[in-house]
Design a binder for these strands. Structure first.
Length: 467
RNA sequence: GGCGACGUAGCCAAGUGGUUAAGGCAGGGGUCUGCAAAAUCCCGAUCGUCGGUUCAAUUCCGACCGUCGCCUCCA
């Protein structure tokens, strides 16, 4: 059985079949640029990065688009409050976003368009929707005619009547129907705006994603991802306007939505405007990439997760064990040595693939990685050949790469290196002279400085420890 | 109120109608070590509560309790 993906639209796992064989067209909703990213965003992007890595590992060519929404009410407000422009604000947060995502080893998309770069596409789409009778202009605004699109509500599983009944917002009386949503809005004085057939204005919130995905990926996509909180109204509206415009269905073959991150058990989800979040930067200041990714991937993407320092610290200790397994990685032999260890490694790899094939079950995949790490450590302890070890390590590395774990240790070469080596040498002379107390003192004091010494049969090795 | 999800060892977290319920962290014991560290070995759960279906349920159904998401901006 091949890859199965849970599709939010049908609420079941389905066999993954792409529109075009061998190619995956994937669009992931990017952030609104009114503030810095938090670890909830990080979780979503780590998850979709892992999905992308796995699809590539499975041999697909992946065309990945992730937008930046740089025109939207909140951004306009924030820019105004900070006395800056939306463009400058966006530049600032985009730079920061890339810095943080790079640090999390989240690979960049093939295209990172900004909403303001596709205004002509948006206008063309809105015009098309009006022509087809799916939208109507009203004093410079343009609204999508929700009742015209049969199937509105199918993604979020609700009917127009239901929503109307539970509506919590005051309704704009001019609209034909309370649920009709804005495709284009008249600019208020001082707001950024573009010329359009309906006067000076700007796009509504949902249309930009349809325009960007269509521009870079065509009228139909294989995977569209985002957080569960964006299913309604954002993705629901995207389906409506995209399918109404193109006349093609489905707009998206597989809707993939990750569950949301909470600050701690029993809390609500993290949200920037509630302030109950840990910023991506804070997390990166405190923890390493391996720990953060491993923590986030230790639970299934459709299960809600609580961010806790203890949890990430536990993940860090696990990551340390994986690093040990990959330590002094022997060269990968040209082919499998066909011994017991190699076969076990291949079994682990198969189990990893089976787990990931089952709707990207990263917790189960991670379990396979730990099993293999134990086998490698065991083999090394019992003096396995470099060839045998090298092969198993190469498989382990292959799998941890799919998970996007760098596993490179805390820091690279530093200026402290020669001095640490010197101390290690001095200490070993003391040990040779059986001056245990002094030797232990050096070790203890280095540990306090974050350098861990380990005496093994092959001599003393050292590494940066957790502080 | 409507729609949806979840409740598994001290903590995190997979999974299955019926052989030993993954994996990680923490804890206890052993091996190794001058001592440590690292690594490794051994040790722990009957699966929210109460009913039902079934030869058999943690796994299916119902009720209840608890938690969370969406219905408004949101990854």
């Amino acid at each position: 059985m091949g890859l199965q993906i849970y599709n939010s639209m049908t609420q079941q796992k389905e066999e993954f079949v792409t529109l075009e064989p061998g190619v995956v067209r994937m669009y992931v909703c990017g952030p609104n640029l009114y503030g810095p990213a938090h670890v909830g965003h990080a979780m979503s992007y780590v998850i979709f990065d892992t999905i992308k890595r796995y699809l590539k590992y499975r041999g697909y060519r992946v065309v990945h688009v992730q937008n930046f929404t740089d025109i939207e009410d909140r951004i306009i407000e924030t820019a105004k409050a900070n006395g800056t422009t939306i463009s400058a604000l966006a530049d600032q947060y985009i730079a920061r976003f890339f810095r943080e995502m790079d640090a999390l080893n989240v690979s960049r998309a093939d295209y990172h368009p900004r909403a303001t770069e596709v205004i002509p596409d948006i206008i063309r789409m809105v015009e098309g929707l009006i022509q087809k009778g799916y939208a109507y202009a009203l004093d410079g605004d343009v609204y999508f005619r929700v009742r015209q699109f049969k199937g509105y509500g199918s993604l979020s599983r609700r009917s127009i009547e239901q929503m109307e009944a539970g509506a919590r917002v005051e309704v704009d009386e001019r609209k034909e129907h309370p649920m009709d949503f804005a495709l284009w809005k008249t600019a208020k004085p001082g707001e950024p705006s573009w010329e359009s057939p309906w006067g000076q204005g700007r796009p509504g919130w949902h249309i930009e994603c349809s325009a960007m995905s269509m521009r870079f990926l065509g009228e139909q996509l294989d995977i569209h991802g985002g957080g569960q909180d964006v299913i309604f109204p954002h993705h629901e509206n995207e389906v409506a306007q995209s399918e109404a415009y193109s006349g093609k269905a489905p707009f998206v073959r597989y809707w993939v939505h990750n569950a949301l991150l909470k600050l701690r058990e029993g809390d609500e989800k993290m949200t920037r405007h509630l302030g109950n979040f840990v910023s991506a930067q804070d997390a990166l200041d405190k923890f390493g990439t391996d720990a953060i990714r491993l923590f986030l991937l230790s639970s299934h993407y459709r299960s809600p997760l609580s961010w806790t320092d203890e949890g990430v610290m536990a993940a860090e200790r696990g990551a340390a064990r994986l690093r040990v397994a990959l330590r002094d990685m022997a060269d990968k032999p040209a082919e499998s040595p066909h011994d017991a260890l190699s076969q076990q490694a291949e079994t682990a790899r198969s189990a990893f693939v089976v787990a990931m094939d089952d709707d990207f079950n990263t917790p189960r995949a991670v379990a396979q990685v730990f099993d293999l790490a134990r086998l490698v450590n065991q083999a090394r302890d019992s003096g396995a050949s470099a060839q045998s070890l090298g092969y198993a390590q190469s498989v382990l590395k292959e799998l941890t790469d799919v998970l996007g774990l760098p596993l490179m240790g805390r820091s690279g070469p530093s200026q402290a290196e020669p001095f640490v080596s010197l101390l290690v040498d001095v200490r070993n002379e003391l040990r040779a002279a059986r001056q245990w107390a002094l030797a232990d003192d050096i070790r203890e004091r280095l540990t306090q400085l974050g350098v861990v010494l380990e005496d093994g049969p092959q001599g003393t090795t050292w590494r940066y420890g957790a502080e």
